[in-house]
């Protein structure tokens, strides 16, 4: 320690180099979010014959720190749609407020038909595309689950660039690598959706959440799961991962305590 109070409790300049003061600029061009800070990991979802199942764990990470362990990343919209958020949590909270005000506006309006999942997905994709075009993106990957006209199951995604796509099974983030192959094995195409029951779909999604907890370091065994059908939304926000088996860990070789 030296006699300079500014240096106390901070990394030594002679070891780590001087602090990059360009971060403290007050003038210059306006800057926007260039990277996410507090983040949520995967969201997984699958269509079945009368609806959609969607799930996301309750963790918000600060880098590699498991910072908030009770964050709900699934959001209901007007008792017909569930929106799942991956990516930046503060941007999620902004979108949550945006959707709340949209819902209030819709409730005051005289339109008879409420916004369905397809309408909401279109709305969100326009918001996301506008923000990326302004170079001020909302750092999220969003899944929209619900029903479209004639109570057909609807599942689609939109990301921070405004890219949209729809598929019988979807997963964001790490889930795109780990969960999608498991989901696609059971529901390979749109035609198969008709033969998948609610129980099968829920079991499938729970299996994916388990695999994600095993292999995704930024995940949690507490998660939210929602089932959307024409009878409404069944949202459970405090589920605990069941029947975990770490027996496979015995068989992993090549690193850790044992050498071979």
């Amino acid at each position: 320690m030296n006699h300079l109070p500014q240096a106390w409790g901070r990394p030594r300049d002679d070891v780590y180099g001087a602090y990059d003061a360009s971060h403290l600029q007050t003038s210059g061009p306006q800057q926007h979010t260039q990277s996410p800070i507090v983040t949520g990991t995967s969201v997984v979802a699958v269509k079945f014959k009368d609806g959609v199942v969607i799930a996301a764990d309750n963790l918000a990470s600060y880098g590699s720190l498991a910072r908030f362990t009770d964050v709900k990343r699934l959001r209901k919209f007007n008792s017909q749609v569930v929106v799942g958020f991956g990516g930046d949590v503060s941007d999620m909270q902004y979108l949550d407020r945006l959707l709340s005000s949209l819902d209030i506006r819709e409730n005051y309006s005289t339109t008879e038909t409420p916004l369905n999942a397809k309408n909401l997905h279109t709305y969100l994709s326009k918001v996301m595309y506008k923000r990326r075009s302004d170079f001020n993106p909302l750092w999220n990957h969003i899944l929209v689950a619900g029903l479209e006209h004639e109570n057909k199951p609807f599942l689609a995604s939109v990301d921070l660039l405004g890219t949209t796509f729809s598929s019988p099974t979807l997963a964001t983030g790490f889930g795109a690598h780990l969960a999608q192959p498991i989901l696609r094995r059971v529901v390979p195409d749109e035609a198969t959706v008709e033969s998948v029951s609610r129980e099968q779909a829920v079991a499938l999604v729970k299996e994916c959440m388990k695999v994600l907890f095993y292999r995704d370091a930024r995940s949690l065994d507490k998660y939210s799961i929602a089932v959307v059908t024409k009878d409404g939304i069944d949202l459970k926000e405090d589920e605990k991962l069941e029947s975990q088996s770490w027996a496979f860990a015995e068989g992993i070789r090549g690193y850790g305590t044992q050498v071979n």
């Binding site: 300079l4 500014q6 990059d20 360009s22 210059g28 800057q31 926007h32």
Partner: peptide, 28 residues
Amino acid sequence: QGGPGYSFSQTRIATSSGIREHSFYPYT
């Protein structure tokens, strides 16, 4: 010179070397 000062307000803020790089790329 160039090290920490007695107080934060005294520290000269180094002029940044050009415009800071944006990491957001709007295309894929």
